[in-house]
Amino acid sequence: MKIIECPRDAMQGRKEFIPTERKIAYINQLLQVGFDTIDFGSFVSPKAVPQMSDTSEVLANLDLNETPSKLLAIVANIRGAEEAVQYRKISYIGFPLSVSETFQQRNTNKSIAEAIVQLEKIQNICLRHNKTLVTYLSMCFGNPYGDPWSAEAVIKYIEELHQLGVETVSLSDTVGMADPASVSYLFRHIIPAYESIEFGVHLHTTPTGWQDKIEAAYKAGCHRFDGAVRGFGGCPMAKDKLVGNVATENLISYLENNGVNLNLNKEAFQQVMALSGAVFS
């Protein structure tokens, strides 16, 4: 079972710039908890996401010496990927692909077809530099823009990713539209059909609407869950109103209540919870 903690997602939509030293202290504390992966930053245009303009400086000050956690950075184009793969500390490169034409344009200024061309090139860049590409397939459970959507269309894109050799795909609900039935349907169909792909789920949801959707994914065989402490976050490219992430503390509670041993340092996590208030105040 893998929990991917996403301070990058928690921070990126905040209008007030979080001081670099505060980001460094917070992420270093997260590294002590023992999460599988920390989605810590992004190599994107500082004009598009000014909150992430200090990602390189943050990375230089992260201590990976006594942690099992690996680092993931998001990129939106080839330039960002070529920069990100130069850093030894980074294991995973995340790329946002969407089944919504509208959101793909809003998020990366590309059509879906153009984004898939970029993704193939980024996959090759990752392979050359011994990094793993994680594709975030957004709007998997519907979208607010009126674009055509169906579960079968989502599966068609997963087939394209499979043909490109992508090994990790996270089904993403960027605006909180998923329902348990659609979550269950997709995972029950794709997990047995694509055994070479590790599937995860990245849900944005209201504080009271998370559990049924997480349960649907878990019971359908998903073993990779993204979260953010206290449910902070939201995609600034998605809608005028941000919809936060699943709270990591809720994920931990749900999985442990279902008998999953996460091997997390609970004392370190309590320190994260205490520190988060100062970081996001």
Rank of each mutant, 00 (worst) to 15 (best):
N77I: 00
N124F: 09
L97A: 01
I93K: 02
V99L: 06
L137V: 04
I158W: 00
V85L: 03
R88E: 14
E101Q: 15
C126T: 05
I155G: 00
C126K: 01
E114M: 09
C126R: 03
E159S: 12
V117M: 05
L119S: 03
E101P: 07
A81P: 13
I112N: 00
Q163F: 04
E120I: 14
K131N: 05
T135R: 03
Y157P: 08
M139A: 07
F141I: 07
V134M: 09
H129S: 10
L161Y: 06
N130S: 14
Y145A: 05
N143M: 11
I74H: 11
V75F: 03
V75Q: 03
R79E: 14
R79N: 06
I93S: 00
I155C: 01
L119F: 08
K121I: 08
L161C: 04
N143K: 10
Y157Q: 12
I125W: 01
N124V: 08
N109G: 01
Y157H: 14
N77D: 12
C140H: 04
E82V: 04
I74W: 13
L127D: 14
I74A: 11
G142H: 01
N124T: 14
W149F: 14
Q118P: 05
G142W: 00
Q104N: 11
P148I: 10
N107F: 01
V154S: 04
I78E: 12
H162S: 15
E152C: 06
E101R: 15
A113Q: 11
G142Q: 04
Q118T: 07
V99H: 05
A153G: 12
I116A: 03
G142C: 08
N124D: 13
G142Y: 02
K156D: 11
